[in-house]
């Protein structure tokens, strides 16, 4: 696949933009060009938040999303916010606990316990990393090793073990969904 679009959506403070940055760096390491945009509200926590990746070989003419191939939803507030950008080939991955009413349509929807898995690891804040590696394991949009290297390289030592545990747990969830 040469061109595709990914959206991380949820509420502000969930680490969606960080996940997008990690995936973006991994994709660039694999030779893609990425345009990453984000939208958030003028608050430090809460509010609708999202980050999009428009992935291509060479710079994209229009750097914003036009049709999502992959959509991750980590909060109910964002559940229906991207419906206009979904098509029959889209893959939607939602948190089974925080998104009680996922979008409905001709596309595939996977309900996965990102938040619950993170909680079991001891910190609900790593749900973003669980979801990120689940997405990559399920879709194959980049190599898991590439992403793991990025997560290792960009995580402060204090959170290294936790983030890598979250990464592994997410991979396991994603492989089940694939």
């Amino acid at each position: 696949m040469d061109d595709f679009e990914v959206r991380f959506s949820g509420s502000g403070g969930q680490g969606l933009i960080l996940s997008a940055k990690f995936l973006s760096a991994a994709l660039v390491a694999e030779g893609f060009s990425v345009a990453q945009s984000q939208s958030y509200e003028p608050v430090s926590r809460g509010g609708l938040s999202r980050s999009d990746l428009v992935v291509s070989k060479g710079q994209a003419a229009f750097p914003l999303s036009r049709g999502l191939d992959y959509l991750l939803i980590l909060d109910g507030a964002a559940a229906q916010a991207s419906n206009d950008l979904l098509g029959k080939d889209s893959l939607v991955m939602v948190d089974s606990e925080l998104v009680p009413e996922p979008p409905k349509g001709a596309f595939r929807v996977l309900n996965l316990p990102f938040a619950e898995t993170a909680r079991k690891l001891g910190n609900k804040r790593v749900a973003n990393i669980v979801a990120l590696s689940a997405l990559v394991a399920c879709s194959g949009i980049c190599k898991l090793e590439t992403l793991e290297q990025i997560v290792r390289g960009k995580t402060p030592p204090k959170f290294a073990t936790l983030n890598l545990e979250a990464f592994e747990a997410g991979c396991a969830l994603g492989v089940q969904g694939a």
Binding site: S24, V28, S33, A35, Q36, S37, Q59, P63
Partner: peptide, 9 residues
């Protein structure tokens, strides 16, 4: 704002 906050390779 889009271009200012846009991240590109």
């Amino acid at each position: 704002e889009v271009i200012g906050h846009l991240v590109e390779t």
